[in-house]
Every structure is written in structure tokens, then in C-alpha cells.
Amino acid sequence: MDRAADAGAPGEVVDAVQLAMSEAFTNALRHAPGTKTITIRAVGARREVTFEVGDAAAAVLPRRRAGREGLPGGHGLHILDAVTSAWGWRPAPDGGKVVWFTLRW
């Protein structure tokens, strides 16, 4: 959140960063065994900030779960859809994967 604020993001974007980071990191903890690392990259000059959550589980790919309305869990990627400008994933050089999200203002 500090990185977003330092990049000049308004308060509602900083709040969205907090929610999106919580969801992305929680997904890594729940669904991807192994060591977790958080890499944060802030790009303030273009009025955007990108965050990355890396994990060691290349075989466990992010996927949206349908039919979870009213049920606990399974909403993390839908939340990323709702509060970020873009998100996705890519293989990590170490064999894991990186889930990233960007917020623009």
C-alpha cells in the first residue's frame, strides 16, 4: 500500500491494492504448496502500480471458480477482476509461477 501511495495513487486505489494483494497472497497460501515470495513493482510515472505474488507451484494455475455465489471461498480471482485494471499469471524462471495485477488511475 505504501508503494501505491508513494507512486501517487489516490486513496481508493490504495484500498484496492490492499484488497487485491490480500486475495492474491491468500490464493498462493491456500492453493500452491511451497515457499511464497512477494515481489512488488511500482510504476508511478505512468499512473499505475503493478504487484506480483510468486509461488513454487507451476502446476497449480489460477482459475476462476463459477457457481460460488453465496458460498464462502472461491471468489479471489473474481475480486481481482473487480478491483484491478488487469491481472494475469506467467511462469517463473525458477519453475513456479507469478500472479500479477495492475491498478491504473
Rank of each mutant, 00 (worst) to 15 (best):
F51A: 15
G73Y: 06
L103P: 04
F51P: 01
D15R: 12
A5Q: 13
R46Y: 09
G73N: 04
P33R: 14
A28G: 12
R64T: 06
G11P: 11
T37L: 07
R3D: 07
G95E: 08
I79S: 03
A4M: 11
H78A: 14
A5S: 12
A82R: 12
D6G: 04
G11T: 11
G8K: 10
D81Q: 07
P72W: 08
L103Y: 04
R41Q: 13
A5D: 08
V14I: 11
A20H: 03
L29M: 15
F51V: 15
I79P: 00
V49D: 03
G8M: 09
F51L: 14
I79R: 00
R41S: 13
G8Q: 11
I40T: 10
D94G: 05
G96E: 05
W87G: 00
T102V: 14
R65S: 06
G67Y: 04
A45V: 14
A66L: 10
S22T: 10
E48Q: 11
P62W: 04
P91R: 12
G88E: 08
Q18N: 09
V13I: 15
G96T: 04
D55L: 06
R3P: 06
G76S: 13
A4W: 04
P62A: 03
F25I: 02
V83C: 07
V17A: 00
V14P: 01
W100V: 00
A16P: 10
W87C: 00
I79M: 02
F51K: 01
P72K: 08
A28M: 12
D94W: 13
V13A: 14
L77A: 03
K36E: 00
R104Q: 15
K36Q: 10
I40K: 07
P91W: 03
P10V: 02
V99F: 02
R68L: 08
G44P: 11
A86T: 08
G34N: 11
V14M: 06
G8T: 11
A7H: 06
L19K: 03
G34Y: 09
A20E: 05
G73E: 08
G11R: 13
L71E: 11
N27K: 02
G34T: 13
R68S: 05
